[in-house]
């Protein structure tokens, strides 16, 4: 049994979902109520491997976390939601659970690993994974394959990673350095010291501001969620630019843009077979929820297929190229593919 810990993207969405599901008691309440609402198991998911034919089953746990809790600095509520959802998943006997959306960010930023006991549950962290290694793999492959689709030659291209020093960002940088002929890798992040350390580790890379990076990059990998309100129409970069939006929540795909600028939802995989769940339109916030899923969620599915009950992705900046390659092999093996452009996206494929 695998698990997915997810959350909705805003209070308004949460109220609307509660109303649609007939939970009027939840729908009519404001943020105060969501701050005390307990985790819920809201859906069961089944996924079949294209190679082995094996079907694995999972549970989707809604943590009742809402991003407004962070915006309003209700950090205690935010951290309770994540830790309580984890204890809930463990109590249900789930072997491996992915922390989706903001869950893993909250876990790491608030050092929740210090909390070992939640009520009568002793948290077994080996039952949880951030899913970040699979996300890094998918972003790396989206750079390779997306570049092909857009007619960008990686050997002559500049790739900027926004949020380069984070867990996923640094993993993507390592993988791109090792596996691709990218001409120039541009590193963008806030912390100068961590940027310098990353550059030393990689043995190269150009440290720049976002504006500088956007003026020269052929491919921009957004790992930090900074795309909100981004206007891509006035961008003065190369004629042809591919943006891979790996931030959360996705908000760039509909951003206004000039001709020659392409945007791909990053960190999402497609499965060759339908993923079976009842509420997918409500809880799986992707364009085609029957086939697509966040790569971090898919990591727990892969680990369940392989019965690798270990916290595959854990801790900060520990994503190695070897681990990315390992999860990548499993991803391919069980029928997942990185999301790419379709003919309908208007690119000459």
């Amino acid at each position: 049994m695998f698990g997915l810990i997810g959350h909705l993207t805003s209070l308004a969405q949460a109220q609307s979902v509660a109303r649609n599901l007939g939970y009027d008691e939840f729908a009519e309440h404001d943020l105060e109520f969501w701050c005390v609402a307990p985790p819920q198991m809201v859906d069961e998911v089944a996924v079949t491997s294209t190679t082995t034919g094996k079907t694995v089953y999972g549970q989707y746990v809604e943590s009742c976390f809402l991003p407004e809790m962070l915006a309003q600095k209700r950090f205690k509520a935010a951290t309770r939601k994540i830790i309580n959802a984890m204890a809930f998943a463990q109590k249900r006997g789930i072997n491996i659970t992915a922390l989706g959306g903001f869950s893993s960010i909250i876990f790491e930023n608030f050092n929740l690993d210090k909390i070992k006991h939640i009520r009568n549950v002793t948290l077994e962290l080996e039952r949880f994974t951030t899913g970040n290694t699979h996300t890094a793999y998918v972003l790396g492959r989206q750079v390779q394959q997306g570049a092909d689709q857009c007619g960008i030659d990686l050997k002559r291209s500049t790739v900027a990673v926004i949020g380069a020093t984070g867990d996923i960002g640094s993993g993507v940088c390592r993988w791109l350095t090792e596996h691709t002929p990218v001409q120039e890798l541009v590193l963008v992040a806030r912390d100068q010291e961590r940027l310098q350390n990353l550059r030393s580790e990689l043995g190269g890379g150009l440290i720049q501001t976002i504006d500088q990076a956007l003026s020269i990059a052929d491919i921009v990998v957004w790992v930090a969620s900074m795309g909100q309100g981004l206007d891509l129409t006035h961008e003065n970069g190369p004629d042809r630019v591919l943006h891979i939006d790996g931030g959360y929540p996705k908000n760039m795909a509909k951003a206004p843009r000039r001709e020659g600028v392409y945007v791909l939802d990053g960190g999402i995989v497609e499965h060759s077979l339908d993923i079976e769940w009842k509420l997918m339109n409500i809880i799986n916030h992707v364009a085609n929820p029957a086939r697509q899923i966040y790569a971090c969620f898919a990591e727990s599915i892969l680990l369940e297929f392989e019965q690798l009950y270990t916290n595959f992705s854990w801790g900060r900046n520990q994503i190695t190229v070897e681990k990315i390659d390992e999860i990548g092999r499993l991803s391919v093996k069980h029928g997942f593919k990185p999301l790419l452009f379709k003919a309908a996206d208007g690119i000459a494929l």
Binding site: V36, A37, P38, P39, K76, A77, R80
Partner: peptide
């Protein structure tokens, strides 16, 4: 003691 935390803990135990 945080009221919110007590309420949430209650709802978890009661719901379970």
């Amino acid at each position: 003691m945080d009221r919110e935390a007590v309420l949430e803990d209650f709802l978890i135990a009661y719901g379970e």
